[in-house]
Design a protein around this nucleic acid. Sequence first.
RNA 1: GCGAUCGUAGCUCAGUUGGUUAGAGCGCCGGUUUGUGGUACCGGAGGUCGGGGGUUCGAGACCCCUCGAUCGCCCCA
Length: 413
Amino acid sequence: MGKNTPKAIRGTQDIFGAEAEAFAFVVETFERVRKLYRFRRVEMPVFEKTEVFSRAIGETTDVVSKEMYSFEDRGGDSLTLRPEFTAGIARAYLTNGWQQHAPLKVATHGPLFRYERPQKGRYRQFHQIDAEIIGAAEPQADVELLAMADQIIRELGIVDVTLHLNTLGDAESRDAWRAALVEYFRAVKDELSEDSQERLEKNPLRILDSKDPRDRKFVADAPKIDAFLSEDAKAFFEAVTSGLDAAGVKWTRAESLVRGLDYYRHTAFEFIPDEGSEAASKLGSQSTILGGGRYDGLMESLGGAPTPAVGWAAGIERLAMLVGEKGEPKADVIVVVEDDTANAQNHAWYVLHVLRDEGYVAEMIATGSPRKRYDKAVKRGAGAIFKCGYETHGLQVEGSIEPALFELLERLS
RNA sequence: GCGAUCGUAGCUCAGUUGGUUAGAGCGCCGGUUUGUGGUACCGGAGGUCGGGGGUUCGAGACCCCUCGAUCGCCCCA
């Protein structure tokens, strides 16, 4: 590489070969399964007015101030590269009159951007698959959404991953729980980690998933949401869990699983690799592969009518790390041009034309030393190797190919 | 923003307590052998050892700065 060559932006990746195949496999599986559940495809802009995200996420955390890719366009508007799908979809729901389709099931995938320090499974431009059900207040929506997530993960062949499920209750339950937590942790403030002492003021729920042992010993005995759930919230959660059981979705209760943002209500969930599993070690410390919840409070923050909704997103890169090697498929036929005559070359073009029109995967080797071209084809591997020389054309079959292709190649010889 | 580890050919790496013209394998290119072919052999291209400064008679190795990568912390919509 010359020192004059521009380098890739930090946190971006050039995905190629086997990794790109795994990436594509994730997206293809998602697309296939999402149709089984009749989630409708949406394509969203990659950037929005900054306020779409800042109002949705809330100004509270430094997420907005520090971790968004924001810039001014020529008209002076502040725009932001989308850090998530949900806010943009909510905006579209409100500005396009999609209320008429409620309850609306939509799915999408693509790149997202967050200004973060890159590490394993974490990039500045990363990619997610995403599913949302908007305008549905019923727990059935949560169940269906989770059933789809579960099926996608299973069909990807990912094992040793468990659905961790919690409820945050309705607004009243949640506020009461939060107050109790603050009171509980404040009493032992001096014994908490420095980070958690700060969390106590900024985001007390987050103390619950602190990794610091100083915090963990208090987390076990912290007030539980269950004690604060209203009857409605309790019934909602029970409907979700019994629905999951009936739908064959395995789950585990995770009382410490929380969401930082205020608009989340009721169901919150993450699919996480089991401790000590191969999946867990492949992912490092960024272990959640799919996460989401019910965000009944979001639409109002964007100036819309109160609208219940639930959704999830999953990192394609992280899923791709778990799907195993997806080798690039071999060609059905490799056509070897055995000498540099126009005869040989043109016959090769003709053979390739016929093969590809018939739907066979075919490529040509026609460069480098003529003597080594055949070896090159053998190394690359193919169902059949077809040789084009000045006068003769020959067929070499490796392993077994289907009779129709064999006959076609014989005819072309 | 903080911390740890690491930057030597296109790729994976070796380079001994600092010591003559910087190495291997794979890949690439060419040739020989084989001659119906996945082998073997020979040769070639390709590196200001991430960049800058310093210590030294001498630095790929040691020190400082810088850039980048990886992993972790914070954060996690």
